[in-house]
């Protein structure tokens, strides 16, 4: 009886496009779905710092170094907003981090690919941040208030990242032959992994339906993937590069491109731990966390000592 009334209020808010706030009643599976989605997103931001951070010390100009440092820092900031948003749902950051470090939690599979050349930094900004924006723009209007507000800030910064990434690609694509080759090679390697970022085909996506119903998602994986391809092909053409898909073809009837699906067997392997960098990424996170333990302890002990001194005075 009671639950039903709460549920009516909740459904009513969804129907009226109103936000659900932390103190509001919400169904347990809505809460669980959000915790999973927001924390996965937070983990992706933090893990994403690693492949890009990989090139900070080797950025080829001082300007590029500053821009990349700021970008990687932004991603850390995104992680922080998102952990904070997840905490409003009644989990602690320690629990979430523990899930990440033990391999229990997932994060975006894209960051299990290596950044092999400087062009990968361009490709990641352009394609990966570009795909992230496409996924995330709709989340600015998601039904859960703290998530939605975090996404407004995040999306603004992601579009900077995309522009900066494309700028790197522009320098390369219009640069020397070696640079152009580097750009094409990066596109070849990042094209399909980026398409995987929208998730498995709708026919095989177990979480999509509820997510759309709850306004945590607004478009399906396949719709987003199509939009990404249509938008990106034009950018590839401007750069004078080639999409690594022999079957890419404009389809007048659907007003979009026909394209080759990414290799979903590879995708499944990468999300279950078999990608080229899964182990390294987790090991790097664990190392930083473990080596930071005494630092966090020192800060806690010091704060406690000082508050005791303060109380005694």
């Amino acid at each position: 009886m009671e639950i039903n009334k709460f549920e009516d209020v909740f459904e009513g808010k969804l129907a009226k496009n109103e936000m659900i706030e932390p103190k509001d009643w919400m169904p347990e599976n809505y809460r669980k779905h959000l915790i999973r989605q927001i924390s996965q997103h937070a983990h992706s931001e933090i893990i994403g710092m690693l492949p890009e951070g990989n090139w900070i010390t080797r950025a080829p100009s001082l300007r590029a170094k500053v821009v990349l440092l700021a970008k990687v820092q932004d991603e850390g900031g995104h992680g922080l907003y998102l952990y904070t948003a997840a905490e409003t749902l009644g989990v602690t950051r320690d629990e979430l981090l523990n899930n990440l470090h033990t391999g229990k939690a997932k994060y975006s599979s894209i960051f299990n690919y290596p950044t092999l050349t400087w062009a990968d930094i361009g490709a990641v900004g352009w394609l990966v941040d570009g795909a992230a924006i496409m996924n995330q723009v709709m989340l600015q209007r998601s039904s859960y208030g703290p998530y939605s507000r975090a996404m407004v800030r995040i999306c603004k910064e992601e579009s900077f990242h995309q522009r900066q990434g494309y700028e790197i690609m522009t320098h390369l694509a219009f640069g020397t032959n070696d640079q152009k080759e580097m750009a094409q090679d990066a596109l070849n390697r990042w094209w399909y992994p980026t398409m995987m970022m929208f998730g498995p085909p709708d026919s095989e996506s177990p979480n999509s339906e509820n997510a759309v119903k709850w306004r945590i998602k607004r478009e399906t994986n396949d719709q987003l993937r199509q939009r990404f391809v249509d938008q990106t092909v034009r950018q590839v053409e401007y750069l004078g590069l080639t999409v690594p898909d022999a079957h890419l073809k404009w389809n007048e009837a659907k007003n979009g491109y026909d394209f080759t699906e990414p290799n979903w067997v590879e995708f499944k392997n990468i999300i279950s731990g078999n990608g080229p960098c899964n182990k390294e990424r987790l090991a790097a996170r664990n190392k930083a966390h473990d080596e930071g333990k005494w630092v966090r302890e020192a800060a806690q002990v010091f704060a406690k000592k000082r508050s005791e001194v303060y109380e005694a005075a």
């Binding site: 900070i56 001082l62 300007r63 440092l69 990687v72 820092q73 922080l80 790097a284």
Partner: peptide, 29 residues
Amino acid sequence: LSEWTGHGPFLEEDLALTNITLDITGAAK
């Protein structure tokens, strides 16, 4: 300092040290 970015002892401190790194690298430039 930039070697620490992404590897700091906890997230807030990672961001703070990167801020310092950014200022210093900006001054170098």
